[in-house]
Amino acid sequence: MNRAALRRIWGLVYRHLALYRRSWPRLLELMYWPVLQMVVWGFVTAYVAGIQANTASLAAAALLGGALLWEVALRGQMGFSISFLEEIWSRNLGHVFVSPLRPRELVAALMAMSLIRVVVGVAPAVLLAWLLYAFGLFRMGPVVVAFFLALLLMGWAVALGVTSLLLRYGAGAETLAWSVLFGIAPISCVFYPVAVLPAWLQPLALALPASHVFEGMRAALLDGAIAWAHLGWAFVLDAAWLVAMGWVFMRQFQAARVKGALLNIGE
């Protein structure tokens, strides 16, 4: 990637950062839901543990760890999709698409914005979990960084699919940007093992990187072990989903150019 390409990516990232610089409610909104989720799950885990102070409970830790890590996938997907929606809402896509910005650079810029939004949104929740419930996400060891990355990649793969639908159906599909990952949550096995699911549903769950990440998280918290096989599968599936959704996005982008959808996508 050459300097001009990096500058184009920065141009789009700068546009979104400028938006946050001018709007503290937007910035607050980034942190609001992850912190709220953490507080609710923190009390749930305290209740499950039986005693308010028993934060060493492994089951409780698995719940709180699951809630925090799920936010990474969720915020990663929403950060990408909503940044794209911002362009639709501002009716700016026509200008963006007639600039020399390549589609892959647009995707890179949306990924960069997603990463920034995840860090800004989830970091306060992780810090508060430590302060309020003495739950340190990093007690799992450095492997938590791999979990974080695997979930972020899954969020991006889902976001590419959502963005493809936005290109296909315009702003009419925007509710998907908020809701789609909630639909995947039951088979992502955030709070329970894959084995709990009915046998027919387990292959579906195991096709998602998230279920491997959360199996790995429970292994790290409950057994103190790194489940390399689950970690490996998580990244292999991430790569497969990203390639598949990247292909769908490029196909849909080209279809939008054929149909003229880029001219009036916000309408």
Partner: peptide, 18 residues
């Protein structure tokens, strides 16, 4: 349109980068 919620200078900077 150009993004309405960012300033004129910021809009021009975005396109200067692009």
């Amino acid at each position: 349109a150009l993004p309405a919620r960012i300033s004129v200078a910021e809009n021009l900077r975005v396109y200067a980068h692009l």
